[in-house]
Amino acid sequence: MRRLLKSLAWITGSLALLLFGPLLMATSGNLAGAESWQDASRESAGIAPLASETPEAVVQVYGARAWSWRGYFAVHTWIATKEANADHYRVHEVTGWRRNVVNSRPGEPDRHWYGAAPELYADIRGKSAAELIPRIEQAVAAYPYPTEYNAWPGPNSNTFTAWVIRQTPGLDVALPNHAIGKDYLGDEIAARVPGGTGYQVSLGGYLGVLAGAREGLEVNVLGLSFGINPMALGIKLPGIGELALLNTNPMPDTETAAP
């Protein structure tokens, strides 16, 4: 009996740890949005440089809280690209309400995700971005789940973003731990981390561990990840994301990124 009680206490404590972040987000009121997705904001947040005023090539990676209750647990991520001297951006993402889930089209790179403000994860410009864009487009076209979508554990929008990053040499971007689905590897068990230096092991996105220079250490249990990031001086909590003092992802140097 004592052993059974210890087991139950351990399971209860583990579930409480995993759900603490999502429950905190649900009760904080910080994610209150529009009553209907039809009324939710899709306006630009004013983060990306205007295409008409930026002749250099631009590659950016964004994320925003998922719609409705899903936002308590996870973010939705996407990639935006602008070729040199182009007058528009292209947005590459996966949405689950279409037969062909991959969307790669002109659009606002930094628009709200149905009311949720976007966060910039990575910003690459100039020659480096120009070299990355053809590789990104090739990876988007080769995405292995063009007609499949499962919000949990994947493949979903974060699976897509992570896959494109892994398949694009030179695009090393660490995605946040609450990008549920980024750890879904399909039939594979091990893969390089999106951040570039490091590896991860995942059992269908349900259970896994990740270690990378940019990501730090993450443990994934039932799609919810927690861990530490020594390089960023941060901790990672399910639902909440990474609380860090530094950013380890590529951002433009203000002296060299100017046109």
Results as ranks from 00 to 15, higher is better:
V164A: 02
A130Q: 14
R192I: 07
P49Y: 02
G96R: 12
I235G: 09
V58R: 04
G208C: 04
V219K: 01
G126E: 07
R98C: 09
I235M: 10
T81G: 04
P238N: 06
A117Y: 11
L185I: 07
D253M: 13
E255D: 13
A84E: 15
L175N: 01
K82T: 05
V91R: 04
A258N: 14
D172S: 12
L203W: 15
T12W: 13
A66F: 03
K127Q: 14
A211C: 11
E137H: 11
G195D: 02
P146R: 08
P106K: 10
G204Y: 02
S44G: 11
T81M: 04
T197F: 11
G21D: 04
V61K: 00
S28A: 11
V164D: 01
V94G: 02
E53S: 13
P259E: 12
T168F: 03
I165V: 09
Y62D: 04
L17E: 06
W97K: 11
A57I: 05
G181R: 00
G223M: 03
G223Y: 00
E215L: 00
I47T: 08
W113S: 10
L210V: 05
W163A: 03
D39K: 13
P109Q: 04
P49G: 03
D253G: 15
N100F: 12
L17A: 15
K182F: 08
N103H: 15
Q167M: 08
K82S: 05
Y121W: 15
I124N: 01
T256K: 12
S225E: 07
W78D: 01
E43I: 09
L19W: 12
A45I: 01
D253P: 05
P169I: 05
V58Q: 06
I136F: 02
T54K: 05
Y89S: 02
I11Y: 14
N100P: 05
L5V: 13
A116I: 07
S7G: 14
A84S: 15
I47G: 04
R99T: 12
T81N: 03
A26Q: 12
E255S: 15
W10D: 12
L50T: 13
D187G: 15
P118H: 06
D110A: 03
E43W: 08
G198L: 04
P194C: 00
P252H: 10
R214Y: 02
V102H: 05
Y143D: 06
I165T: 02
G46C: 10
L222A: 12
N177V: 04
E119V: 13
S202G: 07
P144A: 08
G115R: 01
Y62M: 04
P106S: 10
W10M: 15
R2H: 13
A122F: 01
L24T: 15
V193A: 02
Q138S: 14
T254E: 14
L8D: 11
E255F: 12
Q60F: 06
R166I: 00
D183P: 01
A162C: 09
F73D: 00
D123N: 13
E188S: 12
V193G: 01
G205E: 01
A122V: 03
A257R: 07
S41G: 08
V221D: 06
S44R: 07
N156A: 09
N177L: 04
L245W: 14
W97A: 14
P230N: 13
S36T: 15
L210G: 00
T168K: 01
L203H: 08
L210F: 06
T81W: 01
G115F: 03
Q38V: 13
P22C: 09
E242V: 03
N249E: 07
Y121F: 13
H92T: 03
W67A: 08
N247M: 06
T248I: 08
T54L: 06
